[in-house]
């Protein structure tokens, strides 16, 4: 039924498990035979609906859900310690929220909040997991960044800066753990059809399907790819954007 590499995946931990992207990843893992899920998010009600869905897909699975704290470092530490009393094969850190750039420019507290939830919070979670997972010398830690973290742009540089923080952090962590049994993966989605981009969809933006993005992530994690651009065309697009000379870049309305 499942491929050999997939059948070894048994325990999955997802932080920000109510994310549409994370939810579609969880379904794939359930269908591939994962037997234990630990789902952390801020809303227990939303988590219950997701757990029910996974349970139908994988009746044997044991699914634990918990509403958690995403801000306080001590709380993050103790939650992760508790989660990791059992080893995990895959940990996915998925939470994030797309702030309005104009509002960020008008309010420092908006900016602080955006950097907190998109940058600091995922990095603190990742660091807490990394310590325990590198001791165990096994498992894969995947963090969702964004193509927006590749180069600051006027349309969303506060969000981009926070995602850039995640990018640099993961790079360092990959450097630190290179060659060990513990793998670290950075996921960089392009614009994807999820609740986070609902307002863009309303305006008619072209968005990737969340199923396709999740398929790429699940496959990329199974292969232990260090960086997953999804859809894959974004690797090329962002390479060009990163390398555009400033005099051209500054004239672009992006």
């Amino acid at each position: 039924m499942s491929s050999p590499s997939a059948s070894k995946v048994q325990r999955i931990v997802i932080v920000g498990a109510t994310s549409a992207i994370a939810e579609r990843c969880a379904r794939r893992w359930a269908e591939q035979g994962a037997t234990h899920f630990y789902l952390l998010a801020r809303s227990q009600e939303k988590l219950s609906a997701i757990a029910a869905d996974l349970q139908v897909r994988q009746p044997q699975a044991e699914i634990v859900t918990a509403a958690g704290d995403f801000v306080d470092p001590a709380a993050i530490q103790s939650q992760v310690t508790e989660i990791m009393t059992q080893a995990a094969d895959i940990v996915l850190i998925a939470h994030g929220s797309l702030p309005d750039q104009q509002q960020c420019q008008a309010s420092l507290s908006e900016t602080a909040e955006a950097i907190q939830i998109n940058g600091i919070s995922p990095v603190l979670f990742a660091e807490a997991f990394a310590t325990l997972m590198s001791q165990a010398n096994r498992g894969t830690l995947a963090v969702i960044g964004s193509v927006a973290g590749d180069r600051g742009r006027k349309s969303n540089y506060v969000y981009g800066a926070a995602k850039g923080l995640v990018t640099r952090y993961v790079q360092g962590l990959q450097h630190r753990t290179a060659g060990s049994g513990f793998k670290v993966v950075l996921v960089k989605p392009g614009p994807t059809d999820t609740p986070m981009t609902a307002h863009l969809k309303q305006d008619g933006a072209a968005l990737a399907s969340v199923e396709d993005v999740a398929d790429d992530i699940v496959k990329g994690i199974a292969k232990g790819k260090p960086v997953i651009y999804t859809p894959s065309k974004w690797a090329l697009i962002m390479m060009i954007i990163r390398h555009l000379p400033r005099f051209i870049f500054n004239r672009m309305d992006i």
């Binding site: 609906a49 609740p195 309303q202 008619g204």
Partner: peptide
């Protein structure tokens, strides 16, 4: 606004697309 068609592709008219994600919402 986004242009939507049905399977016959006889028309391609703009629609305001509202994505439903959560049955409670």
């Amino acid at each position: 606004m986004k242009n939507l068609s049905s399977w016959g592709r006889l028309s391609r008219q703009p629609h305001t697309c509202i994505a439903l994600h959560d049955r409670k919402g």
